[in-house]
Simulated assay, not measured.
Amino acid sequence: MKSTILIVLMGTAVFAGTAEQAKLGELLFFDTTLSKNKTQSCSTCHNPQNGFVDNRDNGVRGAVSLGDDGKSLGARNAPTASYAVYSPHFGFDAKKKRFKGGQFLDGRETDLTAQAGGPPMNPIEMGMGSKAEIVNRLKINPLYVSTFEKLYGKGVLDNAEKGYSAMSRAIAAYESTQEFSPFDSKYDRYLRGEYTLTPQEELGKSLFFSNNNTNCATCHQLRGEDREKETFSNYEYHNIGVPSNPLLVERGIVKEGFVDTGLAQNPKSTGKTDEGKFKVPTLRNVAVTGPYMHNGIFKDLRTVVMFYDKYNNPQRTINPETGKAWGDAEIAHSISTKELKAKKLSDTKIDALVAFMKLLTDQKYEHLIH
């Protein structure tokens, strides 16, 4: 009997696969032959040693990722693949009148399987020309041929569409394993009675979940305070007024005046009201997966908290990373002002919130915290 991977989120199955499919997916995840010049695999931009993000400098302080051709750079920061399987399928929440879930920062792919099939054919990522070209690369490897046929049916790689779909499903199966979502951080151990919070961490936890002080948990909570397997995202889309990243302009990656409209680029978008909105990211491993925001503009986690505080604290006017005033919002008309409203924070409280978020680091990455 095959062991099955079944991920259930709030009573809804998000992904199901087998352990054998996951083992095949692991091989594919690290296989550079899936890129045009055979220099890049999924793991290049989602390094399992660094929280499943791109930890390369890429000449832009890690803000965006370098493609297989050695010169192309995207305009967005690669999100972590950690806990990505827990994002529900993309859809519209009629009750809240908001889009929710999906994969990529704009939710353009409904689920993890569809996401896994994107990068190999993206011209500025892995750069392959067609599904047939990729499947032909797979067919060169006898192990792939026999394994794909065993798991997905005889001759599956003789059909480009079926072969590509099977490849994407296998990668998604691997990304759905415990390796990506171990839930073994100090916070998880605290919930199991295996770790005692420091006074600073306790303060940070209280602030994080308190609607009377901060609004963190409004967007970065799904199950509830002290609930097991909390992913620290409600997977909604919001505009928090992030400025454009001048480094991307300096490097010629985007033109002066470029505006990333985020969710509005999703084919299912309702238009202008979605401009500037991006999916709320998980805070799992957030302390080791910088730089932050959709364009990688902020290097330090503490800066991110200060950026949020500027909306409520008249004294919080300077970006500590530049020594200058915070930049203007890339898109201002759709900022989630209600969700950003909170009490102003002291430096002590900011440090406490950062200390709490460091608790969300998987045990294998704790040595990366500084």
Rank of each mutant, 00 (worst) to 15 (best):
K341T: 13
M306E: 14
H333Q: 12
T303A: 06
S334H: 10
V305Y: 07
E339Q: 10
L301P: 11
K324F: 12
S334D: 10
L301D: 02
S336L: 09
R316E: 14
N313I: 13
I331P: 07
E339K: 04
T317H: 08
N319E: 04
A342E: 07
N312G: 02
A332W: 09
V304F: 10
A329W: 04
A329F: 12
K338I: 13
P320I: 12
N319R: 04
K341C: 02
G323A: 11
A342T: 01
W326F: 15
T322L: 08
I318A: 04
Q315W: 14
Y308H: 00
S334L: 06
I335F: 07
A329R: 01
M306T: 07
N312F: 02
D300E: 03
E339I: 11
S336M: 03
Y308G: 02
L340W: 05
T337S: 14
K338Y: 02
G323T: 10
A325K: 15
M306N: 05
N313T: 10
R302E: 11
E339V: 06
I335R: 06
I331N: 02
E339S: 10
R302P: 00
E339N: 07
P320T: 03
L301H: 03
K338L: 14
Y311M: 13
V304I: 05
R316V: 01
D309H: 00
E339C: 00
G323K: 00
K310A: 11
D300C: 05
G323R: 07
I331S: 01
V304S: 02
I331W: 05
D300M: 08
V305G: 03
R302C: 02
D300R: 03
D300I: 04
T337R: 11
N313W: 02
R302K: 13
P314M: 14
E339A: 12
L301M: 13
I335C: 08
I331V: 14
R316C: 09
T337C: 00
T317N: 04
P320Y: 06
K343C: 04
D300T: 08
P320N: 03
D300N: 04
I318D: 02
H333C: 01
R316K: 12
T337M: 05
S334P: 08
V304W: 05
T322Y: 08
Q315A: 15
L301F: 02
M306Q: 15
K310R: 15
E339F: 00
N313S: 06
E330K: 14
D328P: 04
I318F: 09
Y308W: 10
V304G: 13
S336W: 09
T303L: 05
S336Q: 09
F307H: 03
I335M: 07
W326V: 11
H333M: 06
T317D: 09
V305K: 01
E321R: 12
S336V: 13
D300A: 06
A332S: 06
G327E: 00
L301Y: 07
A325D: 13
S334N: 15
A325E: 14
T303M: 07
R316L: 11
D300Y: 03
I318N: 08
P320S: 08
